[in-house]
């Protein structure tokens, strides 16, 4: 019992810290979470293990920062049975990219062959905002198709000042993921 508890507790807690992260290695803003030291040669052991175990190749967070969201802003798991909208209006003039993946980080097949939008190719409103619709069926404007049971969103922001602020523990306001309707 003694050894079982020790081994189980040690391995279980390591797995949790490597996969889910904690305040030691991640920063959160609403539904978005980032591994703030990802890619850095001086990254903490949890971030290094997370990067290697998941086959990731992040740019150092001295230049850009990558957020991942598995839930909407109300905490519900992102799912292709629902429709969501994201308003990109607080990222300034930085280069950004928003992509949709399945639960394992694979691209979601769709007839439109559309997997992401970025600050260069997104259609904007007259006031400069970009409204992105995530739905299974086609929507007018910036439609990002989703399907399958689980959806992960990845938001990449290329801005050294932003990345440095997040690394130092500062909070940044990120776009809300608003659930519109579920079927």
């Amino acid at each position: 019992m003694f050894v079982l508890l020790a081994v189980g507790g040690g391995l279980g807690s390591a797995w949790y810290m490597i996969e889910a992260g904690s305040r030691l290695s991640t920063r959160s803003s609403g539904p978005w979470t980032t591994w703030s030291a990802a890619g850095r040669p001086d990254a903490d052991p949890y971030t290094r293990a997370h990067t290697v175990r998941n086959g990731l190749l992040p740019l150092a967070s001295t230049l850009e920062i990558t957020y991942q969201a598995k839930a909407d802003s109300r905490g519900g798991r992102l799912h292709s049975g629902c429709e969501y909208t994201i308003v990109m209006d607080n990222l300034g003039g930085t280069w950004w990219s928003l992509a949709a993946f399945d639960g394992q980080g694979g691209l979601i097949a769709n007839a439109a062959e559309r997997y992401a939008f970025n600050s260069d190719n997104v259609m904007r409103e007259p006031d400069g905002r970009a409204i992105i619709a995530l739905a299974r069926d086609a929507r007018p404007g910036n439609w990002l198709p989703i399907s399958g049971s689980r959806v992960n969103l990845v938001l990449t922001v290329q801005d050294p000042a932003w990345a440095a602020a997040v690394y130092e523990g500062g909070a940044k306001s990120l776009p809300a993921i608003q659930r519109l309707v579920c079927r």
């Binding site: 081994v7 507790g9 040690g10 391995l11 290094r48 290697v52 175990r53 086959g55 190749l57």
Partner: peptide, 21 residues
């Protein structure tokens, strides 16, 4: 013992993992 296993497991992942980029 749990703490030691936790540290060893965390440090071992980058070395033994075969699925890295």
């Amino acid at each position: 013992l749990g703490g030691i296993i936790h540290i060893l497991a965390t440090m071992a992942v980058p070395i033994v993992s075969s699925g890295h980029a």
